[in-house]
């Protein structure tokens, strides 16, 4: 796959979460759709401002948990009834109350692993390279104390000059053009 070239987008830096959210919701309401915010801690207001409300992690976790439950309960039943039936003090081969316990543990195991890996997969991580890392001020603050709004060049509304003047109206600390 050829590497994309040129401008990835315009990255505006803000000092407070309030300014970021204001700028982000203004950008969203004026029609920008390919945009992202970067914050050093979870900032739900900013995600809501750019129209990101729901994620699928919960659903995948539920499916994972049910799979774990079915896998272990099925394995126990198969082993105890067909593969290796053992008479343990006259208890029934299908001792389902005892089987519940490992099945319960595997429900949690599968659900937990699904939650973690689904979160990473949907986030596209691991991804060690990303264009925003090219912005000189990003590394300095994005994971410490600064808030960023990136309007991406793939957006049909994007225009280097117009988008820059749009961002300037929201008083960012700086605006950087990010290259791929």
């Amino acid at each position: 796959m050829p590497l994309p070239e040129g401008t990835y987008g315009l990255l505006a830096e803000f000092d407070t979460p309030t300014h970021l959210v204001q700028a982000a919701s203004a950008a969203y309401s004026s029609g920008y759709r390919r945009l992202d915010c970067y914050s050093p801690y979870p900032l739900e207001a900013a995600a809501a401002a750019i129209g990101f409300h729901r994620d699928e992690v919960s659903l995948v976790t539920l499916i994972g948990g049910l799979l774990g439950l079915a896998a272990m309960f099925g394995l126990e039943t198969w082993i105890s009834l067909w593969a290796y039936p053992l008479n343990i003090a006259g208890r029934p081969y299908f001792s389902w109350p005892a089987f519940v316990i490992p099945a319960y543990e595997w429900t949690i195991l599968y659900a937990g692993l699904s939650a973690a890996f689904c979160m990473l997969a949907l986030n596209g991580l691991p991804k060690l390279y990303h264009p925003v890392f090219n912005a000189p001020n990003f590394r300095n603050g994005a994971t410490t104390d600064k808030f960023f709004l990136c309007l991406e060049a793939t957006d049909p509304k994007f225009d280097v000059v117009e988008t820059r003047s749009f961002l300037e109206a929201h008083a960012p600390v700086s605006i950087v053009e990010v290259e791929y």
């Binding site: 992202d36 915010c37 970067y38 914050s39 050093p40 801690y41 979870p42 900032l43 739900e44 900013a46 995600a47 750019i50 990101f52 994620d55 992690v57 979160m119 990473l120 949907l122 986030n123 991580l125 691991p126 991804k127 060690l128 390279y129 990303h130 925003v132 890392f133 990003f138 994005a142 994971t143």
Partner: peptide
Amino acid sequence: LGWRGSVRHWVRY
């Protein structure tokens, strides 16, 4: 793993 603090990532996180 390339964490960059995107607010979309944070929501899923």
